[in-house]
Design a protein around this nucleic acid. Structure first.
Lengths: 197, 197
DNA sequence: TACTATCCGGAACATCGTTCCGTTTTGTCA
DNA sequence: TGACAAAACGGAACGATGTTCCGGATAGTA
């Protein structure tokens, strides 16, 4: 509900020059601070690095989720677009699904605490709906459907469920003793055959 | 490192009467507040409900994790003790493992945001080590070993990995669209057979 | 009863998110 | 070009929360 004007191309149209300047500066600063301190970095620090006041950051990105999705919009888009391509290129829908999830996991674990932020907040996972789920969920759904149709995985799994579970598993990737991918592999493996009996 | 004196029976020995009184009051108040507002409830509120100052709560439980583990010590203990019993009673180690994990999941999802708290904090999952992992990890390890030995699941999975993954999956259980158990079932299902090929 | 080690309470400080409003900048129109 | 109004800015200010600190109260003891 807040990711229309501040994000993406829609905002490039005819706003004041200083507004655009600041928005760009904020995006750049946020990207920098995010990699340095995670997506939970204090708002003030981002504002400071961008050389703007705290009020300005709220005007452009009312919610932290807005800022996060704006910063990562490109990569989200790439991930979304990769879905159909993988489905077309892979030798089986399940393979495509695995590859796509690999991309998704890459995306999550590369950003410090991105996965964390998707469940924290007060509104939980829904906080990042703006672009995240709206864009990625249908892609995941298509891959799942294709794999089900090819009779490679059991039916009944909800795309939201799967994506959220994977997101959850990616939380806290800094721990060297914990590798989300191994568990995700297990998850996918458990998905393969129809319910045990 | 901070869960020795404030938690458990060790502290019942010969401290001042008012100190013990306050410690009990704090445990009771925390338990009440936790179920009402989750384990992330403001320290002040717990202190207020116990009728003590904020300084007092920090003296008895330097860390929130100390308070949490103290409050749930009983249930953690029960869960730990259930491991060997299930292993002895079930018709197969894998069945026992599943049942035990069910208990663990029950424990996590019953408490608002307990799973959440185990990965947040600054130190991540390790924050609740005090009693949680130290007590539960060996139990999980035994169950896993038994199942591996019975050739029911693939070898190589680390107990820490599994418990943490399950903990992660239990995050944000309030969402009606998301049921951790279904994914955990998939996980366990993926655990059953040795690696695909 | 008096005395001291222990403990208590909550004020005080720091951090962070968020809001608000006086001031500044920008684009436009005469 | 020179106002002028709308838009945007900046940062002070407020509230919530975690954490520390210390003067004062209290329990146990001689």
């Amino acid at each position: 509900m807040s990711s229309e004007s501040p994000t993406g191309r829609a905002s490039v149209r005819s706003k004041r020059a200083d507004a655009l300047r600041n928005q760009q500066a904020l995006l750049a600063a946020a990207a920098e601070v995010f990699v340095a301190s995670g997506v939970d970095a204090p708002i003030r620090r981002i504002a400071a690095k961008a050389g703007v006041g705290t009020g300005t950051i709220y005007r452009h990105f009312p919610t932290r989720a807005d800022l996060v999705t704006a910063v990562y919009r490109h990569q989200i888009e790439e991930c979304a677009e990769a879905g159909p391509e993988l489905l077309a290129g892979a030798d089986s829908p399940f393979t495509a699904l695995c590859q796509w999830i690999d991309l998704f996991v890459d995306f999550l674990v590369t950003k410090h605490g991105l996965a964390d932020a998707m469940q924290s907040d007060s509104s939980g996972f829904a906080a990042l709906h703006g672009y995240f789920l709206d864009r990625l969920l249908p892609v995941c759904a298509r891959l799942l459907d294709a794999a089900v149709e090819a009779d490679e995985i059991r039916a009944g799994i909800q795309p939201y469920e799967l994506m959220r579970g994977i997101g959850n598993l990616c939380i806290g990737g800094a721990d060297p003793q914990y590798d989300p991918r191994r568990l995700i592999e297990l998850l996918l493996c458990g998905l393969r055959r129809p319910p045990s009996e």
